[in-house]
């Protein structure tokens, strides 16, 4: 469904150039969920932004459902591929009601029948109809993220690009959103490309994951390989041990390598 070959993203020019993404290649099959993991500055979000057209200075090949992507994204692309952003406090227009937020993409795509579509989208994300005419500030973080997901789903896309969809949320709300995403993928046959800094979240949501560091791919492995004790790249090992909690010995080793 998603095929990325030799993707490079460079910001700036000459000796000011920042190589944000270098030679990244991966495929995501129909119905699959792939995780992109890495620390800040690893280029994981930039890959996502290049795919959906928010970054224009990229080189390489991006194919979505076999179609080569040019610099500009078409309306048909937007209908097929939708993105959910990290911070539901920043990604929803504060002066638009939920109804208007959800009806906007329907109007842009000229799909018609907005009333029914809005109702269905809210139902799909588990919000009852009393939420329809509220403003974002009247919603909790988890409810806002549900609205953001509803807005992405209302176009009935095939691919969802998820940029840290739960990292701004409390753990109990994170569990609800992760459950919702897993259920939607199962029910609607969606394909996910999910960026996260949390190995645990990715291991729970994705079949495979790509580990990135300094803009390059470190390795690709299955979620089963992450949990099993298979030999892995030292950087993946390091992320894994660091994500298990505080450990004096590991901290001393990291400080020595630094």
């Amino acid at each position: 469904m998603i095929d990325v070959r030799d993707l490079h993203v460079v910001f700036g020019q000459g000796n000011q150039a920042v190589y944000a993404v270098r030679q990244v290649s991966f495929r995501v099959n129909q119905g699959e969920s792939l995780g992109l993991v890495g620390e800040s500055g690893s280029g994981k979000s930039t890959v996502l932004r290049a795919i959906c057209g928010l970054v224009s200075d990229w080189r390489g090949v991006i194919r979505i459902a076999g179609e080569m992507q040019e610099r500009r994204r078409t309306a048909a692309f937007c209908k097929r591929v939708q993105m959910v952003f990290q911070d539901p406090y920043g990604s929803l227009h504060p002066r638009h009601t939920v109804d208007r937020l959800l009806a906007e993409p329907v109007a842009i795509q000229r799909l018609g029948n907005p009333d029914q579509r809005v109702r269905e989208a809210l139902e799909a994300v588990g919000l009852d109809k009393s939420f329809r005419f509220r403003y974002p500030h009247q919603l909790s973080g988890g409810q806002r993220q549900r609205v953001a997901i509803a807005r992405a789903l209302i176009l009935q896309p095939e691919v969802l690009l998820l940029d840290e969809p739960t990292s701004a949320l409390d753990v109990s709300v994170q569990a609800e959103i992760l459950n919702l995403l897993a259920q939607l993928r199962r029910d609607l046959g969606l394909t996910y490309l999910m960026v996260s800094h949390s190995l645990a979240v990715v291991a729970h949501q994705c079949e495979r994951l790509v580990v990135m560091k300094n803009g390059a791919m470190v390795e690709t492995l299955t979620a089963a390989a992450l949990t099993g004790n298979e030999p892995r790249h030292p950087y993946t090992q390091q992320l894994l041990t660091a994500s298990l909690g505080y450990n004096r010995a590991v901290a001393a080793r990291l400080a020595a390598e630094d």
């Binding site: 992760l178 645990a200 291991a203 949501q205 894994l240």
Partner: peptide, 13 residues
Amino acid sequence: CLPEIGGGRGPLP
């Protein structure tokens, strides 16, 4: 409700 590495992929409580 914390997802865990190796905790399976079922719905989280």
